[in-house]
């Protein structure tokens, strides 16, 4: 029989080694797999995407900016660019880097793949919103155009990605959302968010943390060079103009229905804050609630106008059971916080 101490230390060592090697996503094996994908194809595709985005925004792509995006030295980037020029994807005129028609098509293909993956991650998986972009950045390089079409058809040919960006069609058409930065929206004009810029990631995370989503109605209350104060979906938000410029909106004509149905007023609340025994009327489901969960809510009859009563709370504190269209349905706190209600009034009894 081996000495217990020796056996213990050998076993602990082996377990530790296995963990270091195979830990999901952070183990050596996962890192190696990841690194293997960061090859030339990825770099040239990322470069194409970058140049395309710069062209769309009317900025000038430079050798330095490309090198920054693809995490390569300037020399390697120059080498990559000249290879791309030989392949007729880019042309350099007087030091300006331009996409050729072939290059533009290739760039759109990658953007299509990226946005389809984001849609997939949002609708068909349980990953957190903050992870969608990063994962899609890796997945977008893996598929051939045929496989991308396959993915699109499996997803039911979605037309928008979860950030509100239109997904380029298979034939390479990109229909613009036609939005303008929030900062350009005239004071008091109702608008609707059509897009949140997902780069840089830090800014995007801040916008998400504010609870902003494409599709939300907005209205600017106050705008100055230091801050933008606006209503979005019944809540007041305060952002620096630099951040607010990353929100694209379209102006929307007000209809009588919206004035009543979408109250841009502080009298809305979320279901989780409804006290036991009180009634409330549903205003809507938060836009960040997507995929299976959103459809399930609607199947259960949680729709604008539905009367809900908070009936009882679990003895362990969560979930809470609500009476929804005569049935007693338990929802967890985090789910109930996705449902917007009109604040219960004292006489709101049926």
């Amino acid at each position: 029989m081996p000495d217990p101490l020796i056996a213990l230390s050998i076993a602990t060592g082996l377990l530790g080694l296995t963990a270091v090697l195979f830990w999901p996503e952070r183990g050596l094996w996962a890192r190696w797999q990841h690194a293997r994908h960061l090859n030339e194809r990825v770099q040239s595709e990322d470069a194409l995407k970058h140049i395309y985005k710069c062209e769309m925004k009317g900025r000038r792509p430079t050798l330095e900016s490309i090198a920054g995006v693809i995490h390569a030295s300037l020399d390697n980037t120059a080498e990559l660019l000249s290879a791309m020029e030989t392949n007729k994807f880019v042309s350099t005129l007087d030091g300006d880097i331009h996409l050729t028609p072939a290059g533009r098509e290739a760039a759109l293909h990658i953007i299509r793949a990226h946005r389809l993956w984001e849609h997939y991650l949002a609708e068909e998986t349980g990953f957190e919103e903050a992870e969608w972009h990063g994962r899609a950045e890796r997945l977008e390089h893996a598929l051939t155009p045929e496989q991308v079409d396959e993915l699109a058809s499996q997803l039911g040919n979605p037309i928008y990605d979860p950030h509100g960006d239109p997904i380029p069609t298979a034939s390479g058409q990109l229909i613009s959302h036609g939005g303008q930065p929030l900062t350009k929206l005239p004071l008091g004009t109702p608008g609707r968010i059509v897009h949140l810029e997902d780069e840089p990631a830090i800014v995007y995370a801040q916008l998400v943390a504010e609870g902003l989503y494409p599709g939300m109605p907005v209205r600017i209350i106050e705008i100055s060079s230091e801050r933008v104060r606006f209503w979005a979906n019944g809540d007041e938000h305060l952002l620096a103009p630099m951040l607010a410029a990353n929100i694209s909106v379209v102006a929307e004509p007000v209809t009588a229905e919206q004035e009543t149905e979408e109250p841009l007023s502080p009298d809305s609340d979320t279901l989780n804050r409804l006290p036991i025994g009180a009634y409330a009327e549903v205003l809507g489901i938060a836009n960040k609630c997507r995929g299976a969960e959103r459809r399930r809510f609607m199947d259960l009859g949680i729709l604008p106008g539905t009367k809900i009563k908070a009936e009882m709370r679990s003895p362990s504190g969560d979930p809470t059971a609500y009476i929804i269209r005569d049935a007693l349905i338990a929802l967890r706190q985090e789910q109930a916080s996705l449902i917007r209600i009109r604040k219960p009034q004292a006489e709101a009894q049926r």
């Binding site: 998986t125 349980g126 299976a292 969960e293 399930r296 979930p319 049935a327 007693l328 349905i329 338990a330």
Partner: peptide, 10 residues
């Protein structure tokens, strides 16, 4: 990454 929803009818 698996989809997660919760619903419980009483």
């Amino acid at each position: 990454g698996e989809v997660s929803t919760f619903s419980l009818e009483l």
